[in-house]
């Protein structure tokens, strides 16, 4: 039986990945900060897959390295984790981050440092048994700094480099590191942007692509696929042109 641990399991994309895995009858341990929301996700998955073992783990601190080690240690204690999905994150307003150093720091820690700590902690358990997949939710925002969201983007860029380094290091092992880069997706995190009328991908479609990439062990997956093309263009735009764009 495949065993999956999800960090930030109440995030919209993570929840839809969990539904797909539950549909296959896999066992899931959901980690999050809010007991009530975590239970709501777990109850839903239990209805969807009565054969799956669905557990929850409430953790309050995702930033402290020791706390992260303890969470991952607890997850890997009884039997190995086959897939670890690291999906937590926040998306504060960019302008607010520019005006509030504490918010900016928190944004970078939660979206950048914390996922990297989790990924490394899982690697410490997976490398000795030489199996497992570590999947991290990055973002297209991490591909090039933009005025609209560079604080969040910088953190996601950190995740990108970190995953790249781990992939290099683990290339000759059976441990896989998958970096998913969703475009704007219709989840709770983007509710305010949806109200402004911004077009979003459905979390179900994004999750389907991420789960397929994890099946294959692809190093990087954009979701929806079109974002691979869009971001290739955005990355390659010469600076003088890029600076004229209002994106």
């Amino acid at each position: 039986m495949t065993r999956i641990a999800i960090i930030g399991a109440t995030s919209g994309i993570a929840e839809h990945c969990a539904r797909l895995w539950a549909g296959r009858g896999h066992d899931l341990t959901l980690v999050g900060r809010d007991t009530a929301r975590l239970d709501a996700v777990a109850d839903d998955l239990k209805v969807r897959s009565p054969v799956s073992a669905i557990d929850t783990l409430v953790a309050s601190d995702f930033l402290d390295p020791q706390a992260v080690d303890m969470i991952v240690g607890a997850l890997c204690a009884e039997r190995p984790v086959d897939i670890a999905l690291i999906a937590h994150g926040t998306l504060p307003d960019q302008q607010a981050c520019q005006n509030d150093g504490a918010l900016a720091a928190d944004t970078m820690l939660v979206n950048g440092v914390s996922p990297a700590l989790f990924a490394e902690a899982f690697a410490r358990h997976m490398v000795p048994v030489d199996r497992g997949t570590i999947a991290i939710i990055g973002s297209v925002a991490g591909d090039r700094g933009r005025k609209a969201n560079y604080v969040y983007g910088a953190a996601k860029g950190l995740v990108d480099r970190y995953a790249q380094g781990m992939q290099h290091r683990l290339a000759n092992t059976n441990v896989r590191v998958v970096l998913a880069k969703p475009g704007p997706t219709a989840t709770a995190m983007t509710a305010a942007l949806q109200t402004k009328g911004q077009r979003m991908a459905s979390p179900a479609d994004v999750a389907k692509r991420i789960v397929a990439a994890i099946d294959r062990g692809s190093p990087v997956v954009y979701a929806p696929a079109l974002w691979a093309v869009i971001m290739a263009v955005v990355r390659l735009l010469p600076r003088p042109i890029f600076h004229k764009l209002n994106i």
Partner: peptide, 11 residues
């Protein structure tokens, strides 16, 4: 229309 997109009862 102005559309809100809640994902839980609180929202």
């Amino acid at each position: 229309a102005q559309v809100a997109f809640p994902t839980d009862a609180t929202a």
